[in-house]
Simulated assay, not measured.
Amino acid sequence: MHELDYMERVAYAYARALQSTDSTVWVNRRVPTDARIKWEQCNDMGCAPALFGVKDTSQISRAMVDRLAKDPRFVWMSVDRMAPHGRAIDPELVNPLTGRRMTGSTSGGPVNILRGIHDLAIGTDGGGSILGPAIATQLVGINGKGLGLVGGQPSRSTEGYPLTVGIGAISHTFALARDAIEVLLGRSLAKGSDGLRIALDEAAPRGALSALNQHFAKVEPFSKEGSFQRETGIKMLEALFEHNDVVVSYEGPVDVDAYCDSLAMGQHLDERGGKFLLRSANILNATAVAIPDEHPARGFVVMAPEGYQHACGAFTVAERLATQFSRTALFEDYFMHRTRVEHSGFFHLEV
């Protein structure tokens, strides 16, 4: 990318951020200057700096944000909206992909990625609040809880489970989300072993089994039936972790056929909400990665027990799935590759 092209992209993203008062809480007025400085630093590295937003929550410390903002590869664009009271849907924000209420509670960040405002959203996950929004918008999501990336205050799930939120990233590519996690962690993630034992959801697309069988020693099927209920999901994931290094669940469509939200549905949550083991991963301190496929609001959730080596295994499996499965050309053209210039008002002049 040439410098003028990059700065044009930044200018349109900055203008869009200022307009998007429903999904952004604050916009960094230094973005044009910061982007130019970072371009000069990053150009020697052969890359264009990525724009990022941060969820509007005190669980993410300023020190952690500064760690990312000081890296030459990243420019801080915005503070992004959080669903009210951290709930599982955002009743005031629409998912640009599905037209349904946006999945929460990391709601504004993924919306801003699809709007072209930034490339990366830093968020928190208590009971699926990174993984759910990522899958709902067909983006990559990583919860770094198992690596020690955690919030500052204790919390509680809607069922009363005590927890500490995990901190992670959502992006349009696995590589960018992983880069952000490594910066936040202050450490690179190594490649996991080919001898990993993997539990694979029997509902996963056929290509997943062949893709994993080619690279890993043992892939065994399991059924996630009933795991939309968090108590069931926690017990299931605990049992799977006893005999497997990595668990891969296929989930969705998230918040399309029904909302998986306790306030909206009361005690009548069911599998139509599309959230299964993703609701339990953080409570078990897992490292978890959401990888989209071609189907809207569907994707894989790759989970591993707490610890660095386990996380490396999860990232290796997730990267393999990311190379095997991709979003549709229509999605890419509409949300990723479309022109950043969007005309509004009564008329525009073409020359």
Rank of each mutant, 00 (worst) to 15 (best):
E202A: 15
I234W: 04
F216S: 05
A199K: 00
D179H: 13
D194W: 00
V247A: 09
L196R: 01
T173E: 10
N282G: 14
E238C: 08
L163P: 10
L196H: 01
L189D: 04
A175E: 15
G166V: 08
S262K: 04
D257W: 01
E251S: 05
S188M: 08
A264D: 10
A264T: 11
T232V: 15
L196Q: 10
L163R: 02
D270A: 01
E225I: 05
L284Q: 06
G166P: 04
A258D: 14
G273K: 02
Y250M: 08
E231L: 09
V165I: 14
A199L: 03
S223H: 10
V248R: 02
T173C: 06
F276H: 14
A175V: 02
G266S: 12
I170L: 12
I198W: 00
L176Q: 08
E238T: 10
L269D: 06
L196E: 07
E182R: 08
K218S: 15
V248C: 11
A258N: 09
G192V: 03
G266K: 09
P162S: 09
A177Q: 06
V256T: 05
L240I: 01
G274V: 01
E182F: 03
A217V: 06
E251W: 00
G252P: 02
R206G: 15
L240D: 07
L277M: 15
L263C: 00
P205D: 13
R206F: 06
I198Y: 01
F216C: 07
G233H: 06
F216P: 00
S210Q: 15
F228A: 06
T232R: 13
N282K: 07
N244L: 05
N282Y: 03
Q214N: 05
T232D: 12
H268A: 14
G195I: 00
H268W: 11
L263H: 05
R279Y: 03
D255T: 00
S193Y: 02
H243M: 08
R279V: 15
S262E: 11
Q267F: 07
N285Q: 13
S249E: 01
K235H: 07
L209A: 15
G192W: 07
F241Y: 13
A239E: 14
T173G: 07
E159K: 11
